[in-house]
Write a protein that binds this DNA or RNA. Structure first.
Lengths: 142, 142
DNA sequence: CTGCGTGCAAATGGTTTGCACTACG
DNA sequence: CGTAGTGCAAACCATTTGCACGCAG
């Protein structure tokens, strides 16, 4: 469980007003180790805070994304999924299930950065590079 | 305009039955240079074939995806987009608009393949790697 | 105080589906 | 011929939104 105080600080750092709902949502995100859907977050919250509204959670998630506090994940599926980790990282997508895992690899980051520093893409300024690695997990989730 | 005969062949190669609707949809996809949404495809088709049904187009697109004839692309926006190109390639995503362009780079492919042949990911078998390059186009679409 | 954030519920809109009919192979 | 594909319209469902109220700064 992350200290609510540090959550407050992070929200303030992003220029966001502190509200109980925002703290609850952020905490729920931090406690989800995988990449939850909005519905996952809502269900997790509802058990302890039944009074929070669905629309509010969606609005908060969207606010967080705009403030770069979290990010949205693109999959071929139609539900949006969210990611609290802010460090540069990539993702492993399972093509047989909806499992998604983080993939941290500093060497890969360096290699790509180096590659694209030399090889410019004509007429395009790169802000960010995300590698989507699609395949199968050999062992099922513990 | 791609020769309908070769379209037939491609469908047959994928084990798909030939129907006029499938040929029309595939032709529309081939004629869209960018990465159309289902709605784009439907609108393009409706002008010449007003009788084709929306549900049918969605079903055909889904069939094509399952047969690996085309692929789905997801953006931070919530609409699905489709891609007819079957060669290995990556994408440039504009963070200011919904523009998406193909990015072909054989050197990049070789580098990544080489990298991941050496560095295995524990407990994961890689099928495919897609690089999402996010940034801004310096020149607007002609 | 003042306006942004919230709860609620209704609306939205892209996508899916049930059913009867059609036509591909 | 039999079964997979289609048209149509209704259903679905994740997400958004309008409005009145509440609370953070």
């Amino acid at each position: 469980m992350t200290d609510p105080v540090s959550i407050r600080e992070r929200l303030i750092d992003c220029g966001l007003k502190i509200t109980p709902q925002r703290i609850i949502v952020y905490q729920a995100l931090l406690e989800s180790d995988d990449h939850p859907t909005a519905e996952n977050v809502i269900r997790k919250i509802k058990s302890t805070h039944p009074n929070i509204s669905v629309g509010t959670v969606y609005r908060i998630l969207e606010t967080f994304v705009k403030s770069k506090l979290i990010s949205k994940l693109k999959t071929e599926k139609d539900v949006m999924r969210f990611d609290v980790r802010t460090e540069e990282h990539h993702h492993l997508f399972c093509c047989e299930s909806d499992r998604i895992e983080d993939y941290h690899d500093e060497n890969l980051n360096r290699m790509l950065e180096e590659y694209f520093r030399r090889k410019r893409i004509q007429g395009f300024r790169i802000n960010d590079i995300k590698v989507n690695i699609v395949g199968q997990f050999k062992v099922k989730k513990s």
